[in-house]
């Protein structure tokens, strides 16, 4: 009897939105274990934890930060295609100001301000002028990498590499045995979570995303809320930009974070949110980013020729979304005799 109860509880779990992405993550890791027998080994190298699992967490940090900002914007029924370009601009600002000899703490501040300014621009176009988000943010997506190149030109730009103890400490350093960027990510996640879930902002965002006109009538300033969402997204992208730029010690506006907007949108969707807006799932978005990074890392260690990378990624993403689709699942259970409810 109690077995039956457990079974029922497991069956009921499938309605929990956290189950399917976590299942996908677990499956990817299990496959990795077969591909590479010592996949799960974790050692201590150079005073820090070292291994594939750490790599997945470590590499997922920038993607997760971008995706968190994206989750907030998508919550308002918007989208921000310009996050990759914002990262390119931040990277260029960092390299430029380091060459100019500014204090590095100030440069960190400049980079975040640059992201915020980009967010203000997007917010102005979407909330101020009422341009559709996909078009409004396309402007900066297209122009941003050019702006980054122009910033590189301020100092000649032939060798945009740099060293910075502070920024590289944040990106590639470690505290005790743990990479510093995991603390940075955790701090930003908690700050954003508090802002969204411990103030009324989250409710406003979801209200605006659900029905902007209705929330306006209910007294929510929907334009201000939307505007603020894009600023948050810009700052989160800038934080990712600091980590990515410091990671490679160089500013490469043309190719840095290429297609990161698509991965971010994907992470939000794997996390269970709808592009139709109205919901913000911060924790699940991080799981979505981990699924994508676990997949990327698996492809790299799989030893398959690089020609297959994108095809495999597409197939696995399809499978994950398929698992998440209620329609697909009920269609399958109808096909299996006795499996229908």
């Amino acid at each position: 009897m109690s077995d039956r109860g457990t079974l029922n509880r497991i069956i009921a779990l499938r309605h929990n939105r956290a189950v399917w992405p976590l299942l996908a993550l677990a499956l990817i890791l299990i496959v990795d274990g077969f591909i590479s027998p010592n996949f799960f080994d974790i050692r201590i190298v150079e005073g820090r934890l070292f291994g594939n699992l750490i790599d997945i967490l470590y590499r997922a940090v920038p993607a997760a930060l971008i995706a968190l900002g994206m989750a907030v914007v998508i919550g308002t029924k918007g989208i921000d295609l310009s996050v990759g370009s914002i990262i390119a601009i931040c990277g260029a600002v960092i390299a430029w100001r380091i060459q100019a000899g500014d204090p590095h703490l100030l440069i960190l501040f400049y980079a975040l301000v640059a992201g915020a300014v980009c967010g203000v621009w997007n917010g102005f176009l979407v909330a101020g002028l009422g341009i559709q988000p996909i078009i409004a943010t396309l402007v900066l997506m297209v122009a941003g990498r050019g702006i980054g190149l122009l910033i590189n030109l301020f100092y000649g730009g032939t060798n945009p590499s740099f060293e910075s103890e502070l920024l590289q400490g944040l990106s590639t350093g470690n505290i005790w045995l743990i990479p510093t960027r995991l603390f940075v990510a955790l701090g930003l996640f908690l700050a954003l979570w508090a802002l969204i879930r411990r103030t009324a902002l989250g409710l406003f965002i979801e209200a605006v995303g659900g029905n902007a006109a209705a929330s306006n009538l209910a007294g929510v300033n929907s334009r201000l809320v939307t505007f603020f969402a894009y600023v948050i997204c810009g700052v989160m992208a800038a934080a990712a930009g600091v980590i990515m730029t410091a990671d490679t010690h160089t500013s490469d506006p043309v190719s840095v974070a290429m297609y990161s907007e698509l991965d971010a949108i994907l992470a939000v969707v794997i996390g269970g949110a709808s592009l139709a807006g109205g919901r913000v799932f911060l924790g699940m978005t991080v799981i979505g980013a981990l699924v994508i990074q676990a997949l990327t890392t698996s492809i790299l260690i799989s030893g398959l020729p690089p020609e297959y990378n994108l095809v495999i990624k597409a197939l696995v993403v399809m499978a994950v979304l398929f698992l998440q689709s209620d329609n697909a699942r009920s269609a399958i259970s109808r096909l299996i005799p006795g499996g229908s409810r």
């Binding site: 996949f39 990671d247 190719s255 840095v256 790299l300 260690i301 690089p306």
Partner: peptide
């Protein structure tokens, strides 16, 4: 013994080498 695409970028080269370091035991 191992080959992957790093897309001609510093970022890509770093990610691929990190994976190689793990898959070939340092």
């Amino acid at each position: 013994v191992a080959t992957q695409s790093g897309d001609f970028t510093t970022e890509g080269g770093k990610k691929v080498m990190e994976a190689f370091i793990k898959s070939t035991n340092n």
